[in-house]
Each structure stands twice: as C-alpha cells, then as structure tokens.
Design a protein around this nucleic acid. Structure first.
Length: 291
DNA sequence: AGCCAGGCACCGC
DNA sequence: GCGGTGCATGGC
C-alpha cells in the first residue's frame, strides 16, 4: 500500500480496505484507546501510535518512515491486498458477502505471539471491555514505561521475563480471576521451552497447536486465536460463542458441534478461513445475531 | 437478581 | 469420548 510522508506523519490515501474502527473494535486486539471518532491510540511492539481517519485518508501520527516500515506496515498488514480476499469471500454466499460489505475495513493485525497468548488466555469466559482492562493492569504493573500522551502514561506489554515474576496472588489482585494459574503456567512453559514460540509462529501448524494446548487454560479456541492473531495462521477458524451462533443461524439451523463448524469452515474457506471468521464475528457481534 | 461473556478443567458416565 | 458443572469478575 502506498503512503506519503507529511512532516512527522505518514498518510495513506486509499482507505477502501482500511477502517481504523473496524480494525481495532473487531475483537482481535485489546491495547487501544479511543480518543474520538476514528481517533485511536494504539500500543504495540513497545510503541505508542496515534491513528486518525477521515473520509479522505488515514494518518499515522508522529512516526518516522523507518518506524512505519519496520513496525506499522507489518502490524497493519499493509502488504496484503484485502480487496482480493473480500471479493473471493463474497462469492461464497450472501451472508459472508453482507459481513464483508458491512465490515470491509477489517485487516488482521500481525500481533506479537506472546502477547496474543496471554491476551487470549484472559479472554476466555470474559467480556472484551474487561479483557482490555485486565491487560492494561498487567502492562502497567509488569511492563515497561514507554511514554505518555496528554498526561496519560503508557506501558508495553510485559515480556516473558517481566511477567514470570508475577505470583498467583498478585495476578488475582489485578482481577484476572481463575485465569491466574493459567498465566503462570504459560510463563513457565514458554520460559522452559516446552512451548516454543518460534514453532507457534513459523513451524508446523499441527505441532504448534499441539504445543499450545499443553498450557493450562489453552484449549482449541484460545489456541486458534493465538495462531490466527499472533502467528498469521490464516487457515484456522476460531469458533467462539458468536461465531457458533452466526454459523448455526445462517447455515446449520440447529445446535451444532464446534468440530462440525470448524470442518465446514476449513472445507469451504480454506486458506481464507481466518479472514472469513473475523468478518463474520464482528458482523454477528455488532448485530447480536442469533442471540 | 440472575445471566452472560471471543472457554476451559475437571468430573462422572 | 461425551456431556454437565464450576469458575472470578463486571456489565446489563
């Protein structure tokens, strides 16, 4: 995607496949702050970025070309042509076509694998607003101070080493609830190499998933989220309550096992299953479909 | 007040 | 292997 440099800002003029609200509010990431309509502060890779958008353009504030190329191009997946993905998915059926049309500004962020692992452990049986608050508390306590905007201080997501010092009592004090031992177990298994993030990220997919679900508190769905949102494994189809509901509502017309939905998605959407999932999830949740 | 949330571990069968 | 239940917390 082409960009232009305007003093301290980087600007994109073609935003047909980029909507900062869709990208952030679609449930894939948790470390952002809405300052105004289509005006967000994002924390990722130990950096703070402000993004604003209007009808003409997207502006990435106060960043350099070097930082933009090395971090944000990748983070926002700007090297990928989403118009092809959307066209392909729209051809499958009218429901997917509607979801893609309504939520066409979604892009799947290339987030950090470790941060995704902990974040989606926290996400289980939880509301997105609460997930975000818990992750913010974790970052404030165990992460590194990375700067401030308008008197608000921001902290990076804790590294494995930083989070490994946390005790169960401390974590419970941050209101992670029953997930406290899960986080500790994730720290242990990643630190001692039983779970190799390099494998999760770039190795054999089945081996990656096998390793992930050895962690207490990581089952099929959390593993799939880590693989999709933290490891660019676009062939996985995380099926949560919302995806289950919309798939039952549109396709199966009855209570359906997750395995059946998963197989259906893989067979139909193939390499694009992860993208399909995200359009469907955001669309369904926004409209409360099937609830 | 009771139900639910981007589920999972644990238990009984 | 499969289905039921409890789980911390907060919002509605």
């Amino acid at each position: 995607m082409k960009y232009i440099i305007d003093s301290n800002n980087i600007i994109i003029n073609d935003s047909s496949d980029f909507d900062i609200e869709h990208i952030l509010e679609c449930g894939q990431c948790f470390r952002f702050y809405k300052k105004d309509n289509r005006d967000y502060i994002i924390i990722a890779y130990s950096k703070i970025l402000r993004v604003t958008q209007d009808d003409q353009q997207v502006t990435f504030h106060n960043t350099t070309e070097e930082e933009f190329q090395s971090i944000w191009m990748k983070y926002f997946d700007l090297g990928r042509d989403y118009s092809i993905i959307k066209t392909t998915l729209s051809k499958f059926d009218e429901h997917l076509q509607t979801a893609v049309s309504e939520k066409g500004g979604i892009r799947i962020l290339q987030q950090d694998t470790w941060e995704s692992l902990i974040s989606f452990i926290i996400s289980q049986n939880n509301h997105i607003s609460n997930i975000r608050r818990v992750i913010e508390r974790l970052s404030n306590k165990y992460g590194t101070y990375i700067g401030e905007i308008e008197d608000e201080k921001y902290y990076s997501f804790p590294t494995i080493e930083q989070l490994s010092i946390a005790t169960e009592e401390e974590l419970r004090a941050l209101k992670v609830g029953f997930r406290a031992p899960y986080i500790i177990n994730a720290c242990e298994k990643v630190a001692n190499g039983e779970v190799d993030l390099e494998t999760v990220c770039c190795g054999n997919l089945l081996e990656a998933k096998k390793q992930l679900i050895t962690i207490k508190g990581v089952g099929n769905k959390v593993a799939d989220c880590v693989l999709l949102f933290g490891a660019m494994r676009y062939e996985v189809f995380p099926t949560d309550v919302w995806v289950k509901r919309i798939m039952e509502y549109y396709y199966f017309k009855e209570d359906t096992k997750i395995k059946v939905i998963d197989d259906f998605a893989k067979e139909n959407y193939g390499e694009l299953a992860g993208f399909a999932q995200q359009y469907l999830f955001y669309y369904a949740r926004d409209l409360q479909i099937g609830k």
